[in-house]
């Protein structure tokens, strides 16, 4: 059986908000090390990989592997019934067909319980190769989100170029073109505003901005984001969690 407790329901709410626009139904695999999810978005452009280590929970118990087949929008609907600072418990018996969610406000002596029906989901898996990326950029998650939102007014696609001078985002559409360039920098007072670039060779890739904007909904989970790119390959975009990560593998647009 699974029993996992979080001190604040907002932790799970934010994670679900970061993935719900891309995923419909997917399996969450639970074992003694934690919860994991790997699922393609409906159009197979983005793969979402979520890891929530058991250390990230205030209490965690999972004696044997449990697969939770969930509709992510149904989970989001139920989570809306929890206050952000409620204590949240996830519970599922072995071979049960439901996930029990308990929301507890210890001050008000309120306990709400919701049973979410589980589904058998035949999920497609992709083998992700271990990759040494040509460029790695760590930057503010909020700044990335803002930059992409600004450029989405111009075009459906953004080109990202990374070289030793910095990282440049550019877009071109009917009304004109625009770009934003960030130089590597260290901000001692606000470390999350630093831009760190590790590079073995310059990279330039283009991506669909609609999908990218869905990915950056994870910005509420972490102050920084790690972008990793290699020419002609999907980018890896990672938001670190206190014990785990939300990672996206994002297929670029390729010249015909």
């Amino acid at each position: 059986m699974l029993e996992a407790k979080l001190d604040a329901a907002s932790q799970l709410k934010k994670i679900v908000e970061a993935i719900r626009d891309m995923l419909g139904e997917c399996n969450i695999e639970c074992n003694e090390t934690g919860l994991a999810l790997q699922s393609l978005d409906k159009s197979h452009i983005v793969l979402v990989s979520l890891l929530l280590g058991s250390d990230g929970f205030s209490e965690y118990r999972c004696d044997r592997g449990v697969t939770l087949g969930l509709n992510i929008n149904s989970l989001a609907t139920v989570l809306r019934c929890a206050n952000n600072d409620d204590i949240l418990t996830l519970r599922s018996e072995d071979r049960a067909n439901e996930l029990i969610l308990t929301f507890e406000d210890s001050k008000a002596d309120r306990i709400s319980e919701f049973n979410l029906r589980l589904m058998d989901i035949d999920q497609e898996y992709l083998a992700i190769p271990e990759t040494e990326y040509a460029a790695t950029v760590v930057m503010s998650a909020a700044v990335l989100q803002r930059t992409l939102r600004d450029l989405s007014a111009l075009s459906e696609a953004v080109t990202i170029e990374i070289d030793k001078e910095g990282i440049r985002f550019s877009a071109e559409g009917d009304l004109g073109k625009g770009s934003t360039h960030f130089k590597p920098c260290v901000d001692m007072e606000n470390a999350e505003n630093s831009i760190n670039i590790t590079l073995s060779e310059p990279v330039s890739l283009s991506f669909n901005l609609q999908y990218f904007s869905n990915i950056t909904k994870a910005s509420s989970l972490s102050s920084t984001v790690t972008l990793q790119m290699t020419a002609g390959m999907p980018a890896q975009i990672e938001y670190k969690l206190p014990s785990g990560h939300v990672r996206y593998y994002f297929a670029p647009k390729i010249e015909d």
Binding site: L40, S43, H44, I45, V46, L47, E124, Y125, L126, A127, I128, P129, A157, S206, N208, M233, P234, Y249, A251, K253, I254, E255, D256
Partner: peptide, 14 residues
């Protein structure tokens, strides 16, 4: 012009 390919064009499926 550039086109959008699915992830399976880059990663093998299983």
């Amino acid at each position: 012009d550039s086109s959008q390919k699915p992830l399976s064009a880059f990663f093998g499926g299983s």
